[in-house]
Each structure stands twice: as structure tokens, then as C-alpha cells.
Amino acid sequence: MPRLYGDTDKFGEQNNTPVVEAFHGAIRALVRQKLAASGKSWNDFVFGDAVSSITAEDFRAIDQRLLDYGHRYVWSALVSQQERPEAYTAAQGVGEDLATFSFEHPEAPTAAVDAEGRELRGCGDNVVRYDEDLIGTARYVRSSATVLNYLQNGVPPGTIAVIDDSGGTLTAPILEQFTGVICAGGTVRSHLGILTREYGIPCFMNSKISGIREGDTVRLECTATAKTADAYQKGIEMTGRVWRLSK
């Protein structure tokens, strides 16, 4: 079997992640095989046979091989999971299981109910500092079906959206109607952070929360200092707290 240019790499080692290493290793093996089969020099092969003989079917087989080993891909766009449920890990908290679902971050700070009836359930990076804390009703927004429902029927007043998408597109048509946002991902400079700032909606990004269920009354400490770019670069913790209020 012919050797590839990278086979004599003095410094290169394996990729960090198993999926990438598995895919890239399989592709390199495929290229060696196709190069040998072509009988051509590399220079004649690279933009000729390498393009025509290495096909989508070859790449599909590489993807399938990992599934056959029992691997299931972690999804990030819900459409990926919905179109290929057999290839991805299960989606939770996007359907009928919503009533019992909650984000569970292992580093979420928690504490028992205090004298004011506040139960600490997490923290987040405050996008903008406001004069008063915010109290509202937690409602998970994790799928386009939920967004469409709110788009057609309106977002209930006082909704603090609990989201794990730091982007600005999933909630685009209803974002302005939220009273507040708790986002489990991103930073204050994520698209969602940028947009909530523009709309003047209190928002925590990179939130680490635990045990907050659909319909819980929550309080956001958005009087906390807004997290700065400098704090991110230097790894300085600068968070506001999230409480669940006693019913």
C-alpha cells in the first residue's frame, strides 16, 4: 500500500477526540487504497482520481462503520436527531417529558431555602447589570415546535426562557416577548447575549443550574456585575445567582 505524505510526519500525533481520529484515520486508509488502485503518481491522482473515485458512498460507509461499532453521535441541532434517531443519542426535554425535565449541571451551586424563601439552584454570567433582580416563571424553550406554539399563541407573560441554545435563530420570532432568559451555554458575547442586550431583556449566559422545572418561579440576580471580556480571558468567575422561590 502506498504511503501518504503525512505518514512520515515527525511531529503529528493522533487527534484529541475519538470520533475525529476514527474518521480521519479511515479517510487516510481510503486514500491509500484508491491511490494504489489508480496506479498513478500522486500528482496525477490528487485532483483526478482522488476526486472522482472517492465518493459520498465511501464517506457514508465510514460514518456507518462507527455506528455499527455501537457509537451514537451527540446531536447539537435537533433536526439532526429527528431525521436520524438511530444515529444520535436520544433527545430529552423537547417533548412529552418536559414536565419532569431539568438541566442538571454538575457544578451548579445549590443551597437550602433561606429565610426569604429563596432556594439557590444555580448561577450564570450576567449580560447586563440591571437595577433590580428579576422574578418570573421558568419555561424551557428547546425546540422549534415550542417556538411555533408560542409564536401562534403568544408567550405567557412573565416567562423566563430556559434555553440551551446560545444562538439567535431558534427563538428569533419570540425572543422579544421573553421577560428574561437563562441560557445554559455560550458567553455574554454569544448571539443570544448580544440580542438580549439589544432588546433590554435580562439574561444569564453560561448558566449552571440544577432542578429548575417547567413552571417554577425563579429569581435572577441580574443586579450582579455584568461579566466582562477581561474576566473571560483571565478565567475570573463573575456570576449572578439563580434562585427558585418557595411556592
Binding site: 503529528g12 474518521f23 472517492i54 459520498a56 458512498e57 465510514i62 446531536w75
Partner: peptide, 28 residues
């Protein structure tokens, strides 16, 4: 041709490796 490779997990990790730790062999 490459579309079948581009599932969410591979793409997220491949993007992270090329831009973050620069851990592809050719980048070292």
C-alpha cells in the same frame, strides 16, 4: 461528497480541533 461525514458530533469536534487545540497532525 463530504456531506455524509458531517454529522453533528464529528463536525463539532473537528472544528474544535482545528481551531482550538490545533491538534490535527498536520498542525503540529
Amino acid at each position: 461528497r463530504f456531506r455524509p461525514l458531517l454529522n453533528d458530533e464529528y463536525s463539532n469536534m473537528a472544528l474544535w480541533e482545528i481551531l482550538g487545540p490545533l491538534s490535527n497532525p498536520c498542525q503540529r
